Computed example of a mutant assay.
Amino acid sequence: MGHSNERGKRFSTATGEPGSSVGAGLMAVGGSGLFLFAASQLLFSDDPADSVPNSGGIGLAVLGAALVCLGALLQLAG
């Protein structure tokens, strides 16, 4: 996931930051797991809607995710 520079320190191929390749790799594994879980619920469940909770916490989680995405876009733009 990364390469070593002339001093032997590991750095990310994408960002050049030391150690960031580990975090990116773990995030990719976690995202893949979430995708596979959602796909299995959609394909193999009798009623996929049963796997979605009807609580207000879901709305807060969606709002939080949207704010994180917005913050990331603002960081990239600025």
Rank of each mutant, 00 (worst) to 15 (best):
11 F>T: 13
11 F>R: 05
11 F>H: 08
11 F>G: 04
12 S>M: 01
12 S>N: 05
13 T>P: 00
13 T>Q: 08
14 A>P: 01
14 A>E: 09
16 G>D: 03
16 G>H: 01
16 G>Y: 02
16 G>L: 04
16 G>T: 00
17 E>S: 04
17 E>L: 12
17 E>Y: 04
17 E>V: 15
18 P>L: 01
19 G>W: 08
19 G>F: 07
20 S>T: 10
21 S>W: 09
21 S>E: 15
21 S>C: 08
21 S>M: 15
22 V>M: 06
22 V>K: 07
22 V>N: 06
23 G>I: 02
24 A>R: 08
24 A>F: 03
24 A>G: 03
24 A>N: 04
24 A>E: 10
25 G>M: 10
25 G>R: 06
25 G>A: 11
25 G>Y: 08
26 L>V: 12
26 L>D: 07
27 M>F: 13
27 M>T: 11
27 M>C: 11
27 M>L: 15
28 A>E: 15
29 V>C: 08
29 V>N: 08
29 V>Y: 09
29 V>I: 14
30 G>Q: 14
30 G>W: 04
31 G>N: 09
32 S>C: 12
33 G>L: 10
33 G>T: 09
33 G>Y: 07
33 G>S: 10
33 G>D: 05
33 G>H: 08
34 L>D: 06
34 L>W: 04
34 L>Y: 05
35 F>I: 15
35 F>G: 06
35 F>M: 14
35 F>Q: 13
35 F>P: 03
35 F>Y: 15
35 F>R: 14
36 L>R: 12
37 F>C: 08
37 F>V: 15
37 F>W: 03
37 F>K: 07
37 F>R: 10
37 F>Q: 07
38 A>R: 04
38 A>Y: 00
38 A>N: 07
40 S>G: 02
40 S>P: 00
41 Q>A: 09
41 Q>L: 12
42 L>F: 11
42 L>E: 10
43 L>E: 10
43 L>V: 13
43 L>R: 13
43 L>K: 14
44 F>D: 13
44 F>K: 13
44 F>C: 15
45 S>M: 03
45 S>N: 07
45 S>I: 01
46 D>L: 07
46 D>P: 05
46 D>W: 02
47 D>Q: 08
47 D>F: 03
47 D>S: 10
47 D>L: 02
47 D>R: 09
48 P>E: 01
48 P>A: 00
49 A>Q: 11
49 A>V: 07
49 A>W: 07
50 D>C: 01
51 S>A: 13
51 S>L: 03
51 S>F: 09
52 V>K: 02
52 V>N: 02
53 P>T: 06
53 P>E: 07
53 P>N: 02
53 P>K: 00
53 P>M: 01
